[in-house]
Structure formats: structure tokens, C-alpha cells
Amino acid sequence: MAMVASRAGVSGQTVSRVVNDSPRVDPATRARVEKAMGELGYRPHRAARALRTGRTQTIGLVVTTLATVGNSRMLQATAEAAERRGYALLVVTAGESVATAFARLQDQSVDGAIVLNEASALTQATTPPEGLRLVVIDGVAGHAAGSASAPASRTVSSDHAGGATKATRHLLAGGHVTVHHLAGPADSFAASERERGWRGALQDAGVEAPPVVRGDWSAESGYVAAASLGTATAIFCANDQMALGLTRALADQGRRVPEDVSVVGFDDVPDAANYRPPLTTIRQDFSALAEAAVSALIADIEETGSESAIVISTELIDRSSTRP
């Protein structure tokens, strides 16, 4: 740092401010310091910084699986958001014990952690290590078990219920008498919220909700579920993967989409536009979710304040798998 300061003709404190992205450096001086850093190959020493500040600039991501499309997309988006903020990302799998995952993160001295989707339910019954700041994606806000005096974790989620309402109303507007629902796992926050939005839209329309058929997010479970959906003419699927399996099963039954059955998915995975037919779906903004979660966690770590609960809007993408 002293060598950088000498080459740039500034004080060591100014170099420190540039390294820490302080706004108290004018653009011309910042450019001169960054040029000197580049010429000398200077990089901040993460371990030394951690000793000085008490922070490692590393955050954890707790998942139960990366096999689902949603989780893998969230991993990518979270890694990119953390990198933009100068933080490293450490991924741990929770399995059946999120407490073990928290302990592993504490051993690595992370500054905080993001808990993703299915792992969020496990967090409700677990007391995280003291001082570990948390942001929960797609979970219920509140205190961990046995720690009512501790600050509640922050939450970030998509507007699952609102998206499901849009999907259901879109199908009802096409003249369908009712809308059937291929739901996700019963213990999933996102699946429960999507089911709630579907039920609410039917209730508002004065339509009795048909029995729910449940899958496990996989295309295979969507294929199997078709046998339980009878002669339904409109089906809202809780994710695109199950919608993919469902449309294949309907084709095997000799039922055409959308001529005989209208199908709507949820997520808008990159391949949804290339399904046959292209899938009408609810788009989640995974990049916005990750950015909000990382920003909320870093604000908590750096004690600059942030909202306790953030909801990201969803959007109906109308393609060819629905028709009146």
C-alpha cells in the first residue's frame, strides 16, 4: 500500500479509502491510485483486512440441493451479486440439518449467510450461531427457535401468490370453467404461496377449487400427475419443469396443448420459450432476488440498515400453451 501511495503521489490513507470504495475520494485521484495499483499488481490482502476489520468479506449460501433449476439459477445469480460487491461466496448443503451447515459456516468465519428456498423451512426450527447474520430467501420472517430476543432474520422472496393469481386469472379469462393446480411439495414456502394465490383467484371468481395434485418440482412428477388431472381443460403448474412433464403426458394421452388443454407454468426457465408449444409462464426475476438478498445481508453486516422483508414482483409471460 505504501508503494502504491508513493507511485500515485498520495497518502496511505487515500489508498485505503480507494481500496474500501470510500466516496471521500475525488474521481481524478481515484483513477490515479487505481492506475498505480494496476501497474504494481497490488491486491488487498483479505486475511490482513479480516484481522483489522473483524470481517472476512465472505458470505455463505445454505442450500438443500442444487439439482432444481430454481436453486441452480439462484446460485449463479447470488455468486454474481456477491462478486459485484467484493464478497466471496461459500456454498454449504444443509441436508436434514441446517445447524450443521451453520456450524461449518461459522468455522469458516463468514460474515453472514443467505438461506435458500427449501433450507428456509429448516431454519425456522434452528438457532443459528450467535452473531451470524441471516437473509432467508423464500421463507417466513421471524426469530429462530429458542431465540425470541435475537433480531429476526431478513427475508427476500418473489411474489409467488401474486404470480399464481395472475396465472389463474389468465386461464379463467379464457373462458375455462375452472383451473386445476399441479402444486409443488407441501413443505415448500414457494409452493404454499403459489397454491394460496391460485385458491384466492378462484375464490374471487366464485369458483370452487378442484382437488390439488402434488408433484416434487421434477418433470417426471409432472408426467405422472397427468393421470390424476382427468379431463381438466386448464392447468396451472407450480413450476416449468412439472409443466414440461405434464405436456408430454398429455401428448401421450392424445390431448393437445393448447387446443384441448391450456397449461401455465412458473419460473420462466431459459428453455420455456422452446418447449412445444412455447410455455405461458410466470417469470421470476432471479437476478433481482439475488441482488436484493446480497444487498440486504451486506447492509446488515456493515450496519447501514435495510428493509426486513423484501418482495420482488413477478410477471405473466403469455406464449402459445394457452388459448381460449
Rank of each mutant, 00 (worst) to 15 (best):
S11V: 04
G12Y: 12
V15M: 01
V15A: 03
R17P: 10
S22N: 12
P27H: 07
T29D: 08
R30I: 03
A31E: 15
G38H: 15
L40G: 09
P44M: 10
R49G: 00
R52A: 14
R52L: 11
T53K: 09
Q57S: 11
Q57T: 01
Q57V: 06
I59Y: 02
V62A: 09
A67W: 02
G70S: 09
N71K: 08
R73T: 07
T78H: 01
G86L: 06
V92L: 14
V92G: 01
E96L: 04
A99M: 11
T100Y: 00
T100Q: 11
F102N: 00
A103P: 02
G112M: 04
G112S: 05
G112T: 13
V115A: 06
E118W: 02
E118T: 01
S120D: 00
A121G: 06
Q124H: 13
T127K: 09
L132D: 07
D138V: 00
D138T: 05
H143Y: 06
A148D: 14
S149T: 14
S149D: 15
P151H: 05
S153C: 08
G162E: 11
T165D: 07
T168N: 10
H170Y: 05
H170C: 01
H180G: 08
A190H: 02
S192R: 12
R194D: 04
R194L: 00
R196D: 13
G197C: 06
L202Q: 02
Q203W: 07
Q203R: 11
G206I: 07
G206F: 10
P211E: 08
V213L: 08
S218I: 08
A226P: 13
S228C: 11
G230E: 07
G230V: 08
T231N: 13
A243N: 03
L246Y: 00
A251K: 15
G254A: 14
G254D: 05
V257Q: 08
E259I: 09
S262V: 06
V264L: 01
G265M: 01
D267K: 00
P270T: 10
A273E: 14
N274C: 08
P278C: 02
D285P: 00
S287K: 03
L289S: 07
S295D: 14
L297D: 08
A299M: 11
D300R: 05
D300A: 15
E303N: 10
E303C: 15
T304S: 13
G305M: 13
E307G: 09
S313N: 12
T314I: 07
T314N: 09
E315N: 10
D318A: 15
D318C: 15
S320R: 14
T322N: 01
T322L: 03
